[in-house]
Simulated assay, not measured.
Amino acid sequence: MLKEARLLDERREGIAEGIAKGKANEKLATAKHLFSMGLSVQDIAKATSLPFEQVEALKEE
């Protein structure tokens, strides 16, 4: 029974990790789309809640 509980916890952690990665990828995709619309780095950082430095690095890609 203890093994089942541990497996269930690991599964929940894996799901939570997947959701977090999905949200992060969505923010990056949104930032790229906002760049294509001509928004500034500062506005994109504010809109996506991404750090300014990360948005600035994304612009340079």
Rank of each mutant, 00 (worst) to 15 (best):
A57F: 05
D9H: 10
E61D: 08
E17I: 00
A16L: 15
D9A: 14
E26Y: 02
G22A: 04
L39P: 04
A45H: 01
D9I: 14
H33Q: 12
L8I: 07
L7S: 12
A29G: 08
E17T: 07
K27Q: 15
F52R: 11
E4M: 12
K23L: 14
A24M: 13
A29N: 11
E17A: 14
L28N: 03
E56V: 01
G14T: 11
P51H: 04
K21I: 09
L7G: 04
E60T: 12
P51R: 01
D9K: 14
N25K: 15
E56I: 02
K46V: 12
L50F: 03
E60N: 12
E60G: 00
G38N: 08
V55K: 01
R12W: 10
E26F: 05
E4V: 09
T48P: 03
T30H: 07
G18A: 07
K32F: 04
L7Y: 10
M1K: 08
V41L: 03
K59M: 09
Q42V: 13
L34I: 04
G22Y: 03
A47G: 05
G14V: 02
L34N: 03
T30E: 10
G14Q: 10
M1E: 08
D43G: 01
M37E: 15
I19H: 03
K3S: 12
E10N: 13
L8Q: 15
R12D: 08
I19G: 06
I44H: 01
K59E: 09
E4K: 13
L34P: 06
M1T: 11
S40F: 02
A31F: 04
E10T: 04
V55N: 05
L2K: 11
A5K: 12
A20F: 05
K59A: 12
E13H: 10
L34D: 07
K23Q: 12
L58D: 05
K59Y: 07
L58H: 02
K27D: 11
G18E: 07
L7R: 14
F35M: 08
A45P: 07
I44Y: 01
R12H: 10
K46E: 15
T48A: 03
Q42I: 07
I15M: 10
D9G: 04
A29K: 13
L28Q: 13
